[in-house]
Amino acid sequence: MTRRTDAHPDPTRPGIGAPFFSTWRVGSPERQAQTVEAIARTWEGRPWGSAALLGYHVYAGHDGSTLMHYSQWRNEQGYEAYFKTLRQERNDEIDTAVPGIERVRLDRYRLYRSHARAAGDTRVPGLIVTVRIDFEPDAAEKRADWVDLVLSALAGPDADRGLISAHFHLSTDGTHVLNYAEWESDQAYDEAIGGPESPQWERVRTYPGVKGFTGNRYRHALGLVP
Rank of each mutant, 00 (worst) to 15 (best):
L53Y: 04
A40S: 09
E141K: 08
R3L: 14
N75W: 02
A33Q: 10
G156N: 04
A116E: 11
G126M: 10
W146D: 05
R103S: 00
M68R: 13
H176M: 10
P47M: 08
L67V: 08
G209E: 06
I128L: 15
A166D: 14
D186Q: 13
A33N: 04
S22A: 12
I39L: 15
E136V: 00
S171H: 12
G194L: 04
A18Q: 09
T85V: 15
D95H: 04
L127N: 10
G15A: 02
K84D: 11
Q88D: 14
R143L: 14
D134K: 13
G223I: 11
P137E: 14
T23G: 01
T5Q: 09
T172Q: 12
P9R: 05
T35V: 10
A7G: 07
V210T: 14
F21E: 01
V26D: 02
W24M: 09
A159P: 01
Q34H: 03
E202T: 15
P11A: 03
T206K: 15
D6G: 12
E37L: 08
W201L: 14
H57F: 13
G17V: 02
R103M: 02
R31P: 00
T35E: 00
Y180I: 04
P125F: 11
V177S: 11
A221C: 09
I164W: 07
D121Q: 07
G209C: 02
I101G: 00
S50P: 06
F83V: 01
V225G: 06
H169E: 03
A97F: 02
L178Q: 13
S165W: 05
A181Y: 10
D107P: 01
T5I: 12
